[in-house]
Amino acid sequence: MKKGKVWKYGDNVNTDVIYPGKYTYSMLEPDEMASHALEDLDPEFAKNVNPGDFIVAGRNFGCGSSREQAATCLKYAGIQAIIAKSFARIFFRNAINQGLPVIQSEEAARTIEGGEEIRIDFSKGKIRSQKGDFTFSPYPASVMEIIKAGGLIPYTKEKIKRGKLGK
């Protein structure tokens, strides 16, 4: 069971407000990236977020650019997982590839409120909130392997080492 406080946002939280384009091509350090996380949506977030917090949001979280830093900066800010009604497809891939769990649950995203403390059990696929429990389906095996490895880069490194490349 992992426990943390919730930051709640609405629909269509896009990659530009998560991590503005003006920072994307200048290779910033993790602390610096974390300090700009969600800058154009909620300037209070980066100042007050604590390691282990969760984000709960509406539909189409992470829509827009393919910039991976939208996932990375939230991870560096200490976000443990994101629950949303739905995710934009590239953000979904990017988050998994950074080892940042993303959970799609319409009901949990609708019910859980900002500021409350929730618990997530990843192995059982369970979210516990003040207003009740929610379940989510585990990832497909191929995705789980990437998360277990800590992201795509360590996963690929391992795969090459084991000589497990196709063709």
Binding site: S66, R93, N94
Partner: peptide, 8 residues
């Protein structure tokens, strides 16, 4: 796709 995916 994302950057890590291109690197991979």
């Amino acid at each position: 796709i994302g950057r890590s995916e291109v690197a991979s």
